[in-house]
Design a protein around this nucleic acid. Sequence first.
DNA 1: GGGTACATGTAATCAGTTACATGATTTA
DNA 2: TAAATCATGTAACTGATTACATGTACCC
Lengths: 172, 172
Amino acid sequence: MPDNQLTPVSYVVLGLVAQGATTSYDMKQKASRSVGYFWNFPHSQLYAEPERLAKLGLLEEEREEGGRRRRVYTLTPAGRKALDEWLREPTSEQPQIRDTGLLKLFFGAGLTPAELSALARAQEEAHLARLAVYEEIADAVTSANHAAVVRAGLLHERTFVDFWRELAATRR
Amino acid sequence: MPDNQLTPVSYVVLGLVAQGATTSYDMKQKASRSVGYFWNFPHSQLYAEPERLAKLGLLEEEREEGGRRRRVYTLTPAGRKALDEWLREPTSEQPQIRDTGLLKLFFGAGLTPAELSALARAQEEAHLARLAVYEEIADAVTSANHAAVVRAGLLHERTFVDFWRELAATRR
DNA sequence: GGGTACATGTAATCAGTTACATGATTTA
DNA sequence: TAAATCATGTAACTGATTACATGTACCC
């Protein structure tokens, strides 16, 4: 029962399977318009990771007979347990942000006001685009928890749209 | 001049050296109370990465004679150029967030209100702690750009403190 | 002068990413 | 039936992380 060698992506996979995803492609589809927005990874991991989890006994792997003969995954009791325990453990782990824009701002003492302004506008655009996506998703969401996550996304994007907009204004 | 094989951490190192850091430990010190908050990485990278950059001709490496005989790095003209060009290129890249709390919320349809509340409080605590750090840093900051970055951090943390607090309240 | 914290690195591993390759299904 | 597009993977690489190991300076 080695439970601590699981990565966040492991739990994403377990969670997606628990929510009814069965094949890697299915997970990819579901993830790409939900959890993928706040924990991104390439689709190849959705082929590698389930295999690992199957080896650990947390997923069961079956092979389709006809057609594409793709691998179909289901949660084992051990997998369900691992997921539940992880979910129930409140994390105080610090969220990480990886923001190239802030990085450039931090090191950009030598930038001209125009260059800084261009950076700020590009970032504002990026956040606006993401905001639009979240607003669209917000309408389609069914569960209370998913709605809450989308809300977090909306608040976050609005915060940064404002931040960059103000920055562009004050440095003009 | 292979410029695209540089990672964000490469630029962090170049930026730190440009800001006057000379040894790996020095970079570690400076990063740990600034850029490390929004782009975290283990200190071992601050030994490996400068070596790579030196091989690429972007840093010059010298060895101290006496004492610890540590490696002292300085920017080469090519390094300065690479950094400047990167800084001047406005990024529209989407910032990534990696938030375990949101992950648990997303997959936590089966959590009881009490468990959800515990998660929310733990997350609120974590964000409050980080907020306190930023407030302290805010006073010590000298440059306008650094002040702006700290401001982004403050806004971000306040957003999430509020988010989790409200969540705990509405699900009670 | 012994202990403790600070400082400097290395080695090994692995998760994550990129790139490639091909099969199945739909559509025009 | 040809051509897109959707779908399913694999292989290779490497950046990032973990863990270890040791040296130096300080302080009690």
